[in-house]
Amino acid sequence: MFLVFLRLGFTAFGGPIAHLGYFRQTLVTRRRWIDEAGYADLVALCQFLPGPASSQVGFALGLLRTRSLLGGIAAWTAFTLPSALLLLAFAYGAHALTGPSAQGLIHGLKLVAVAVVAQAVWGMAGSLAPDRRRASIAVGALLLTVFAPMAFSQILAIALGAVAGLVLCRSDDGPGTGSRAVPISRRAGGVALAAFLILLIGLQLLAGALGSHALALSDAFYRSGAFVFGGGHVVLPLLRSALVDPGWVSPDAFLAGYGAAQAVPGPLFTVAAYLGAVAQPAPNGVLGAGIALVAIFLPGLLLVYGMLPFWDAVRVRPAARAAMRGTNAAVVGILGAALYDPVWTGAVGSPRDFALAALAFVLLTAWKAPPWCVVVLTTLGGLAIG
């Protein structure tokens, strides 16, 4: 489990939506660790919850596959480690990428994301929105997300998709075929949800009562991770408010870390490693990076762990299966909206960009090329264009 996700951690460029595409190709299509419906259920659950969606999905996949919490921790650690170490190194003096060649490399990585997300939309639409009703739900979710690009629009799209599924998809035969063997008791899930709330309130109270900067730093990152809906980029304004406003991190250092985070694989939340390392006063450096990483990811992982046993029990009911068909279709629409903005609009600006993204898409879908190979070739192509 660790080695599989470590490879993904080194090659998964392009942000959370692209990461879901990498996960789908590696773990659903190629390794068949979970089927399409089960994977879509996990994506829908993690879209409902605050936190880093791709890291939450990876954690849940590791947990379900190995039937142990250790497997989930191994998946999360391996997926997070490469980008966290790169950003920690940047905090210790690596220079930000500048110049035409470096910009070309970054542009190539953005074009990789176009191909990966397009492949995910193409594959998931065929299995999760195969008829007129579910295709219509998917398009409705796409329109809502495109024309109302707010942090909660994805949650609203999934909720409306569930309602539409209840109305339109009750006649569909057969239960969902996703994984139902959740190795978590409801009692353990309840403990995890209680721990989420206790830490959310308790860290702030303890930091104020004890005057501990380590606790204050933990609280800043924990609250940022607990209130993020809509993807990794949404965490940046929260972190800026939590760290720059009190003077712990300078505005220039914050922006430099954001720029570096765009050039590394893995979850964008690992920018916390850089910010924890450069924050003043102590603890900072390696200790500050460790505190920041654990604190920003912990709320999302606690929520997934706490919700999985209840989620699985609900989804086997007939009404819940109908709602789930609607939410799965809505997930396809949300992925389609993300393919347009920010993935397409942020990467494709010329016919050469379009040609390179199309080539990467064909390599992934028709030639079944490994994602890391497509990353290398497309990045070199972006460098040539630059």
Score class of each variant (00 low, 15 high):
50 P>S: 10
31 R>L: 14
60 A>R: 04
95 H>G: 05
360 A>G: 15
198 I>V: 15
255 L>I: 09
304 V>S: 07
51 G>A: 09
298 L>V: 09
152 F>I: 14
167 V>I: 15
383 L>M: 13
247 G>I: 11
174 G>V: 04
186 R>Q: 12
25 Q>M: 04
221 F>V: 11
69 L>H: 04
286 V>E: 05
72 G>Q: 10
33 W>D: 13
195 A>C: 14
386 G>L: 11
30 R>W: 05
167 V>A: 14
73 I>H: 00
84 A>I: 10
215 L>P: 07
289 A>M: 06
78 A>Q: 05
265 P>M: 08
305 Y>T: 12
227 F>G: 10
143 L>A: 14
373 C>T: 15
66 T>F: 01
209 A>R: 15
55 S>M: 12
229 F>R: 04
338 A>P: 02
341 D>G: 06
6 L>I: 08
117 V>N: 02
188 A>K: 00
167 V>E: 01
151 A>N: 11
382 G>C: 10
380 L>Y: 04
268 L>Q: 01
211 G>C: 10
130 P>V: 12
384 A>S: 12
77 T>S: 15
136 S>Y: 01
224 S>G: 06
237 P>F: 08
103 Q>L: 15
83 S>R: 06
86 L>F: 13
117 V>M: 07
266 G>Y: 05
223 R>I: 12
153 S>Y: 02
25 Q>A: 13
142 L>I: 01
110 K>M: 10
331 V>N: 02
266 G>E: 04
187 R>S: 13
244 V>H: 12
106 I>C: 01
360 A>C: 07
342 P>Q: 11
272 A>F: 09
322 A>F: 07
384 A>Q: 03
216 A>N: 10
252 D>E: 15
48 F>E: 01
365 T>N: 06
40 A>P: 01
278 V>W: 11
163 V>M: 13
367 W>S: 07
114 V>M: 08
58 G>N: 06
119 Q>I: 00
64 L>K: 01
4 V>C: 00
271 V>N: 05
150 M>L: 15
360 A>I: 03
255 L>V: 13
33 W>P: 01
381 G>T: 09
314 V>F: 14
206 L>T: 13
316 V>D: 14
308 L>W: 06
347 A>Y: 09
295 A>Y: 04
321 R>G: 12
356 L>D: 07
